[in-house]
């Protein structure tokens, strides 16, 4: 039985880590982009951001004041048992969200969509979101928090099989150009592309691809992995850099996730995880110990399974970043 206090303590720590510490994979990706950036203004912006991450860590201060809309991803091992059950777990995650909003502090961004009511704690109706996935042959629970900004950089389009890769490229470029102007997407970004699924699944896959996979990771399908590299290159040849200034720093990484869709369609979503790509993960073990890391390892062979039955004997489920 995993103690509920361990889950809540870990969740509190994750909220602060996500808000303050830029993940290493994104930092390395941004440094690589800065090394080849020739646009003077864009290069100035990247330099300021690199200094900003240092200031955040030194001061234990949130890296950006738009601390996004905190949300949770929970991966539950098939053998895991949580003290108090899922209702207690959700209560602990809500308490951690509210607590960290005051203690870090984060900006209380969450308001009622119509009445603009703000509880000053980032909690409310359907907030924070909590999404779940499961893992075979495991007795741990993994918590990931993502603090993604919410206004600019995501879009959805129903394409058709005849649109092909060209259609996806066009939509990808449209989204990057539209939201990249004046830097509204806060690029360079980790761009997540969801291809397929139902409309809601398509959005979910693209968002998870942006927020829950690391810079430099690849989809296990080699043809999709090649597309990820091609799309990253395409985004960086638009001629637009940070803040929409002339430059090459648009895409730090491109991650694609797929889902089977309606035979007549090819829905696509594009998401941009910004200069403050905030995420933090911990595995909480059965004895309450927490192992922290910045790679959520959310997408697994089990999650991407294609067959009716999962075949646990053929291979253990691999967690890939």
């Amino acid at each position: 039985m995993i103690p509920i206090t361990a889950l809540e303590t870990t969740a509190n720590e994750l909220m602060a880590k996500a808000a303050i510490e830029i993940p290493d994979d994104y930092l390395d990706g941004l440094r690589a982009a800065a090394d080849v950036e020739t646009g003077e203004l864009s290069a100035f912006v990247l330099q300021a951001m690199l200094e900003n991450y240092e200031a955040a860590k030194e001061d234990r201060r949130a890296m950006c004041a738009d601390t996004g809309v905190p949300r949770w991803y929970v991966k539950i091992g098939n053998e895991a048992r949580i003290e108090g059950g899922p209702v207690e777990l959700e209560a602990a995650l809500r308490r951690a969200t509210a607590g960290a909003t005051n203690s870090v502090p984060l900006r209380p961004n969450r308001v009622h969509p119509l009445w603009r009511t703000d509880h000053n704690n980032n909690c409310g109706i359907n907030a924070p979101e909590i999404e779940y996935s499961f893992h075979p042959d495991a007795d741990w629970v993994e918590l990931t928090t993502v603090h993604k900004g919410g206004l600019f950089g995501s879009d959805y389009r129903m394409l058709f099989p005849g649109d092909g890769i060209d259609g996806i490229k066009k939509f990808f470029l449209d989204t990057l150009v539209a939201f990249g102007k004046r830097g509204l997407a806060c690029q360079p970004a980790i761009v997540g592309i969801g291809i397929g699924g139902s409309k809601d699944t398509c959005m979910m896959l693209g968002k998870q691809a942006a927020c829950l996979r690391t810079v430099g990771s690849h989809n296990p399908d080699p043809k999709i992995a090649a597309l990820e590299d091609e799309f990253k290159e395409l985004g960086n040849t638009i001629g637009m850099g940070a803040m929409g200034f002339m430059g090459s720093s648009m895409v730090v990484g491109c991650n694609i996730e797929t889902g089977y869709c309606h035979t007549g369609g090819m829905p696509v979503s594009v998401h941009m995880f910004c200069l403050s790509s905030r995420r933090a993960t911990a595995r909480v073990l059965i004895d309450g110990r927490a192992e922290y890391r910045s790679d959520p390892q959310w997408f697994t062979d089990y999650m991407r399974r294609e067959t009716v039955e999962w075949q646990p004997t053929s291979q253990p489920s691999r967690q890939s970043g």
């Binding site: 300021a48 900003n52 200031a55 001061d59 201060r61 890296m63 950006c64 200069l275």
Partner: peptide, 14 residues
Amino acid sequence: LTTVGYGTGALLGR
């Protein structure tokens, strides 16, 4: 004047 980045939140906070 435009902020830089955007998101030099820690530098501005200082």
